[in-house]
Design a protein around this nucleic acid. Structure first.
Lengths: 232, 232
DNA sequence: GCAAAAGTGTTCTCGGTACACCCATGC
DNA sequence: GCATGGGTGTACCGAGAACACTTTTGC
């Protein structure tokens, strides 16, 4: 006879890779582990899923406890469940990634973990605890693909941004196909008509100030409904 | 203090959507449930993941028990873990899909479940048990996307096939953008140089017999290594 | 000889890519 | 006035899309 308890011997968790863009670099938020296993190694932020909690909600909670942010872009990527991936027992983890705007927010987490968190540029995000290298790879690959067909880039930029910032963001994500032609990039992105020229300019820069734009989500959604496809 | 057992109260399963192509139609293998909940409703093939079993292995086992097949294309899609998706308790399920060649094989499963399995054309695969409609949707969407950038179609066809069969397969998957131009399709697929003309022809058809081709996987992999991108 | 599907080329359009110089500001 | 990044237009090429008739077989 089938007995539910016989199969309920596994734990499951979510890991949430939190991407941010700062100083022209793509970064993720890592946590320095304070206890075994993998003490003192960097790890992805994650947590167990509570018994009455949906998976997405758990990922949002991890993000919230760490940064104080909510309502950010969140996407499930893939589930990692190799038998021996966790030394303490059978632990299946569902991997997510989030996109947050670093600038203009003081990230403050509520959990003690947030003390041990640090933004690390993606080139340096190696040698992570558990199978987190693999998880990071999978999520970053997904982001690279997704960002070309969905207007996700704006989730990583401040509300007002310049076209050069936007281009640098794409270059940071799509590396090493790093070299995007400035004129072609602008022609393409402006031809989509999903950016609004704010008629404002950068201030305090030692060169010709750039114009500021914002992303017009309403317009984007209207175009999509009409069959438009974002594509970079 | 952290106690592993406190969190190990959930069960997890895999569901595996098995796609096949037959009579010009895309079909999936469904199981008629013989017990509650959802008695007599159609459901996706699935099973609990054994404590010492990797997720992929569990999905392969589900496939094997049902069809006797192994070494087929298998891809993880997404994990469904809503708190109340299963009436018996908290059950998280990892969704997979497989692509199998129906023709030329007598599918014979080892499990008693295989008696209750049936190939159902995807248009009729609705009103499934649990949240399986949703799971099917997600997997079918993934297949639609994937099939345009990876040579997966061949996994669903017999080893030798005609160009018309290949085109019909794409039309079945990519519906409702159903109308593909014959000349353009052939020009494109042949220009990739990944098909081998077998110098054989169909037999016993009441019209001009079509030439038979096979997919050259070696060549495809060589081209990919050189930077080639499959794209339909 | 008729029904049924196989096979085959050309033209047009549009989007992608390559490419170099002047402009506005801070110091 | 000089250093720094901002901003702009054109020409070429190749891929995708549209489109109709002849060929080969079974009956």
């Amino acid at each position: 006879m089938f007995n539910f308890e016989d199969y309920a011997k596994s734990a499951f968790t979510v890991d949430n890779i939190i991407f941010g863009f700062d100083q022209g670099e793509l970064k993720i938020l890592l946590i320095k582990r304070g206890e075994p296993p993998y003490t003192n190694q960097w790890a992805l932020p994650g947590n167990f899923v509570y018994p009455n909690e949906d998976l997405d909600a758990a990922a949002e909670r991890v993000l919230g406890e760490l940064t104080g942010l909510k309502d950010v872009y969140l996407e499930q990527v893939r589930t990692f469940g190799e038998v021996n991936r966790h030394p303490l027992g059978r632990v299946i983890t569902v991997a997510y990634y989030s996109l947050v705007k670093i600038k203009g927010y003081n990230l403050k987490g509520t959990s003690p973990l947030s003390q041990k968190a640090k933004w690390v540029s993606i080139e340096n995000a190696t040698n992570l605890a558990f199978d987190h290298d693999q998880i990071f790879e999978a999520c970053f690959r997904r982001l690279k693909r997704r960002v070309r067909t969905r207007p996700l880039g704006f989730e990583l930029l401040p509300r007002k941004f310049t076209l050069t910032e936007l281009q640098q963001l794409y270059e940071a994500i799509l590396q090493p196909e790093k070299k995007i032609d400035k004129r072609n990039f602008r022609k393409k992105i402006l031809s989509m008509k999903i950016l609004v020229d704010l008629n404002e300019a950068q201030e305090g820069v030692a060169h010709r100030p750039a114009k500021l734009y914002k992303f017009d989500k309403k317009k984007y959604e209207k175009f999509v409904a009409e069959g438009f496809n974002f594509e970079i």
